[in-house]
């Protein structure tokens, strides 16, 4: 028997498939862990640091970073920086939004705000404050200086500077009116370096930019103008309900108008409207474009990664 068995073919002895199946379990577990790690470290978006003067309302792990109303990241840590002069907000961005981490991006904190003429950030009363971003167009970076207030959306148009003796009722976002129609808005104001004027920066929408000419006259349209005359009786004028509460500026352009105002043009604001400006009725072709070609805003495109 044993002699014969040498001439017979040898049986294969191999591992049972079932026992190999059991060893697939640790392999599967390792693959799962590897996938988690890949997801967290390789596919994760960048982590950015934003320095704010005041981070009130932000919470670690809870507060979001939002762009166009969509969550694009989470606040990971809050700590004092620069010897207590700033708060460093460290946030991790989602991969899809990694491209907002570039130079020129403006970050600000959205909190509930109640101002004359404008209520904003109402949803943050229940959901908590969040960090909003307006992406810039520069190269990639990870460190930003946060803005204290929301930057104006980049509306195409021209920027002009207005000088006034008195601030009056002008507020950021106050309207600039032409014949009572809103053609632009006030961005911000400050006292000039020698404290002689109030310097108001304003923006006129692209479409209406030709209305502003070098010889245009601006006046303060906020509040009520009351005039008591002996024969005309009491005469009360107000530009609009909006300017009544929020303040505003109006302008008129003479019939024989000059060159169009360019970016950075400077005008003085008159305290009152001159009667003769009312009669000006110039014919100015506007920058009208077909509605489809109009760009609502110029926020840069983000590159998908």
């Amino acid at each position: 028997m044993s002699d014969q068995s040498h001439s017979l073919p040898r049986a294969k002895i191999q591992k049972d498939a079932l026992s190999l199946f059991f060893w697939a379990l640790p392999v599967a577990a390792a693959i799962m862990c590897g996938w988690f790690l890949l997801h967290d470290f390789v596919l994760a978006g960048p982590s950015i640091t934003i320095y704010f003067k005041d981070a009130q309302g932000l919470q670690v792990q809870n507060s979001m970073v939002k762009y166009r109303g969509v969550e694009i990241g989470t606040v990971e840590s809050l700590e004092l920086a620069h010897h207590g002069q700033d708060v460093a907000v460290r946030a991790s961005l989602h991969r899809s939004a990694a491209d907002v981490a570039r130079q020129g991006s403006i970050f600000w904190i959205v909190r509930p705000e109640l101002k004359v003429g404008a209520i904003s950030g109402l949803q943050t009363i229940v959901s908590g404050s969040y960090v909003a971003v307006q992406p810039g167009a520069g190269g990639p970076t990870n460190v930003f200086n946060g803005s204290t207030e929301e930057p104006p959306p980049p509306i195409p148009g021209i920027s002009i500077t207005l000088l006034s003796d008195d601030l009056g009722a002008i507020e950021p976002q106050s309207d600039i009116l032409y014949r009572g129609l809103k053609v632009g808005s006030v961005l911000n104001y400050r006292l000039d370096d020698n404290a002689r004027y109030i310097v108001v920066n304003a923006r006129i929408m692209q479409e209406y930019a030709p209305l502003v000419r070098v010889d245009s006259e601006f006046w303060n349209a906020g509040g009520i103008n009351a005039h008591l005359g002996l024969f005309s009786g009491l005469n009360i004028t107000a530009e609009s309900a909006q300017t009544l509460v929020a303040g505003g500026l109006a302008f008129a352009t003479p019939e024989k108008y000059g060159a169009p105002a360019t970016n950075g043009a400077v005008f003085f604001i008159n305290n009152k409207e001159d009667k003769t400006w009312d009669d000006w009725n110039p014919i100015i072709p506007l920058n009208t474009q077909p509605e489809s070609k109009k760009t609502k805003n110029e926020w840069p495109q983000l590159n998908a990664q």
Partner: peptide, 27 residues
């Protein structure tokens, strides 16, 4: 095999969140 697989998964089970609760916009 079973205990090696369990040992590997022990780490994610403790490092990753068990639940994510969303309450009034906060998670």
């Amino acid at each position: 095999a079973f205990s090696l697989a369990a040992g590997i998964l022990y780490f994610p089970s403790n490092l990753y969140p068990i639940v994510t609760a969303e309450y009034q916009g906060q998670s």
